[in-house]
Design a protein around this nucleic acid. Structure first.
Length: 549
DNA sequence: CTGTGTGGAAGATCGAATAA
DNA sequence: TTATTCGATCTTCCACACAG
C-alpha cells in the first residue's frame, strides 16, 4: 500500500547534488524553489536516513524543517543537514540525487557510488580475514616494477600479485622463475597473451593495476619530435594540428563506442574503435614508417588497459613510462576516458636519483585513483642523494671486456655535433649519478662507457642493476637472463635466436627496466592513502596510518 | 531530587562567491 | 541577472556535572 501511495506522489524535480564538508563532516545541502513544490517552506519534517535512500516527509513531530529563506523578495526552501549519522552514511559518497515528489523528498545514492562503497567494505572485510590487496601486472616484463610497488604498498596494506599479462613467454616465465612476487604467491597466474586476447578470458577482479606499457614507440615519438623541431619541419606540425582537430571531432563517437564496449564486453567494438584511432594516429604522425612498434599494437594496449579498468574498476592504476608519453595521443585519450570513469589523474616525472639511487634517467609515473583515495605524486618526499660512487658497484671483468672504443665515441660526438645523436657518457667510476641507457641503443653514438687504464668497457648488466638500486633478489633475474641468452633461446615466434653477447642481453633487461626505490615510495604513498580510507570503515582494521618517510 | 550552569553538537541563518 | 553553492556565524538543544 505504501508503494502504491508513493507512486501516486507526483515527481516535481530531480537534482544531482555534490556533498561538501562542514565542520569536517559531510554536508547534505540543497536549496531552491524546487523544494517548495515538494514540501512547503516551514513544514516540520521527519528524516529517515539510509545508505541507498534517505527520506524527508512532513511530520509535525519531526526534528527538522524546511528552512525558510528569502532572497530578493522571493521565498524558497533550504535543506541543510550536518550530523554524525549523515556523515557516517555519506562520508565516502561524492554526490547524491535529490528526488522531489509532492509530500516526499528522497535522497538517493548513485549505483556507481554504491558499488564503490561495497568494494571498500569487501576489501576491509577481506583484510580482516587475513586476505591481501590484489594486484594485476600488465606488460611489466620482469616484474621488477610490480615487486617495487607491492613492497611499497605492503608497508601499509598487505598486497600480493593476482595475475600478470606478459605477451613474451620468455620474459614472463623468467619473471615467474626468479621474481620474489611470484615466489611469495604461487597461485598467481601468468598469461602469455596479448592484452586484447586476455580480455576475452574470465579475469579475477583486482584492487590495483600496475602497467608498464611498451615505450619504444613513445620514445621514438619523442625522438621524432625532437628531430622535427631541429630541422624546422613545419609541415609535420601542420599535419599534427589537423589530425588533432580531426581527433577532437571524432572523440564523442569514440567515447560512445567505448561505452558500448564496456556494457557488452564486445570485442568487435574494441577492434572497430582501435582501427579508427589507429587511422587518426597515423595522420598525426607523418613518419610512421620509422617507428619500430606497430601503432595498432600500441593503441590496442592503451585501449585494452582502459577496457580492463572499466571492467575491473580497481582502486588505482599505476603507469610507468617515458616522460614523452604525456604528449602521446593514446595517453591523452586514456586520461580523458579514465576521468570519465571517475578516476583522478596525477603524474610526476622523476629520476630514481631523487629517491637515493644512482640512476638519473627521468621516468613518468602516472596514477589513476578512485575517490575517496587521493594521491598527489608531487608531494611524495624525495630521499637524500646517493653517496656511493660507481666504483663501489663495479665487478671484476675479464681483460677481454676492455677494448678501444675511441672510434665509436668519436663517431658519437660527431653525430651529437650535428644534432642527431646523444651524449657519449664516459665514466671514470667516481660518479654518484649515472643514466643507465640500455645496450640496444649502442649504435656508436649513445651509451655510457667506463674509461680506464686498459681502455674502455661497457657497464655490465649486474653493475647497471646495482646502479638502478636492485637488490639481490632482483639481480638474480639479470644473472638468469645472461645465462639464458648465453645458451641461446627461442623468441616469441618460436625461432631460435643466435646467442648474444652476454653484456648486450642483460643490459637490455636492466637498461630498460625501472629503479625500485622510486616506485617503492610511490607504492607506499598509495598504500598509505588506502589505509587511511580503510580505517574509516567499520571494523577498523589495524593498519599503519603514518606516511612512510 | 531538582534547578542551574556549561560545553559541545547540530540546526538555522546569512553574506558572498560562482555558475548559468 | 538569477539560481545555486559555499563558508562562516549565530542560535538552539541536549547531555552532563554539580550544588543546594
Amino acid at each position: 500500500m505504501k508503494t502504491a501511495s508513493k507512486l501516486m506522489q507526483r515527481l516535481t524535480g530531480i537534482a544531482k547534488v555534490n556533498l561538501g564538508l562542514k565542520r569536517k563532516q559531510r554536508r547534505l545541502y540543497y536549496e531552491g524553489a524546487a523544494i517548495n513544490r515538494a514540501i512547503p517552506v516551514g513544514t516540520p519534517v521527519r528524516l529517515t536516513p539510509g545508505v541507498t535512500r534517505t527520506t524527508l516527509v512532513p511530520d509535525a513531530d519531526g526534528k527538522h524543517s524546511i528552512i525558510r529563506r528569502t532572497i530578493a523578495g522571493k521565498e524558497h526552501g533550504v535543506i541543510d543537514i550536518v550530523n554524525k549519522t549523515i556523515h557516517s552514511l555519506y562520508r565516502h559518497t561524492e554526490s547524491v540525487y535529490f528526488v522531489l515528489r509532492e509530500g516526499l523528498i528522497e535522497i538517493l545514492t548513485s549505483l556507481t557510488a554504491l558499488q564503490d562503497r561495497q568494494q571498500w567494505q569487501a576489501l576491509a572485510e577481506k583484510l580482516k580475514r587475513g586476505g591481501k590487496l590484489t594486484i594485476a601486472s600488465i606488460c611489466s616484463g620482469g616484474d621488477i616494477l610490480t615487486r617495487a610497488i607491492i613492497d611499497g604498498l605492503s608497508k601499509h596494506v598487505p598486497a600480493q600479485l593476482a595475475y600478470s599479462c606478459e605477451a613474451d613467454p620468455a620474459v614472463g616465465s623468467m619473471a615467474v622463475a626468479h621474481s620474489p612476487v611470484w615466489q611469495d604467491n604461487p597461485d598467481a597466474i601468468c598469461y602469455h597473451l596479448p592484452l586484447q586476447q586476455m580480455l576475452s578470458q574470465p579475469l579475477p577482479r583486482t584492487d590495483g593495476i600496475v602497467a608498464s606499457l611498451p615505450c619504444t614507440s613513445l620514445s621514438s615519438l619523442a625522438e621524432a619530435d625532437r628531430r622535427r623541431r631541429m630541422s624546422k619541419a613545419r609541415q609535420d606540425k601542420a599535419l599534427d594540428d589537423s589530425a588533432s582537430q580531426a581527433l577532437g571531432e571524432e572523440l564523442p563517437a569514440l567515447k560512445l563506442a567505448l561505452a558500448r564496449l564496456a556494457q557488452r564486453n564486445d570485442t568487435t567494438v574494441l577492434a572497430e574503435v582501435t582501427e579508427r584511432l589507429e587511422r587518426l594516429e597515423r595522420m598525426a604522425t607523418p613518419n610512421t614508417a620509422t617507428k619500430p612498434m606497430d601503432e595498432v599494437e600500441k593503441n590496442s594496449l592503451f585501449m585494452g588497459l582502459y577496457a580492463l579498468a572499466s571492467q575491473s574498476r580497481p582502486l588505482f592504476v599505476v603507469l610507468e613510462n617515458v616522460h614523452a608519453a604525456l604528449n602521446d595521443l593514446s595517453m591523452k585519450l586514456l586520461i580523458t576516458w579514465m576521468q570519465g570513469l571517475g578516476y583522478q589523474f596525477s603524474y610526476e616525472v622523476r629520476c630514481a636519483s631523487d629517491h637515493g639511487a644512482m640512476e638519473q634517467r627521468p621516468r613518468l609515473a602516472a596514477l589513476f585513483t578512485l575517490p575517496p583515495i587521493s594521491v598527489e605524486l608531487q608531494v611524495i618526499p624525495t630521499r637524500p642523494a646517493n653517496q656511493v660512487p660507481l666504483n663501489a658497484l663495479l665487478q671484476p671483468v675479464p681483460d677481454s671486456a676492455w677494448s678501444d672504443m675511441s672510434k665509436g665515441i668519436a663517431r658519437g660526438e660527431a653525430q651529437l655535433a650535428k644534432g642527431n645523436g646523444f651524449e657519449v657518457k664516459q665514466l671514470t667510476g667516481d660518479e654518484t649519478r649515472i643514466g643507465c641507457i640500455g645496450a640496444q641503443y649502442w649504435r656508436g653514438y649513445k651509451t655510457c662507457v667506463i674509461v680506464g687504464e686498459q681502455g674502455h668497457r661497457q657497464i655490465t648488466p649486474l653493475e647497471r642493476a646495482r646502479a638502478m638500486g636492485w637488490d639481490e633478489a632482483d639481480q638474480a633475474q639479470v644473472i638468469a637472463t645472461i645465462e639464458r641468452e648465453a645458451l641461446g633461446n627461442r623468441d616469441s615466434n618460436g625461432k631460435t635466436r643466435r646467442p648474444r653477447k652476454h653484456s648486450r642481453a642483460g643490459s637490455e633487461l636492466v637498461g630498460n627496466a625501472i629503479s625500485p626505490p622510486m616506485w617503492r615510495d610511490i607504492g607506499s604513498a598509495i598504500g598509505a592513502a588506502i589505509a587511511r580510507t580503510l580505517a574509516t570503515f567499520n571494523g577498523q582494521p589495524q593498519l599503519s596510518l603514518a606516511f612512510d618517510g
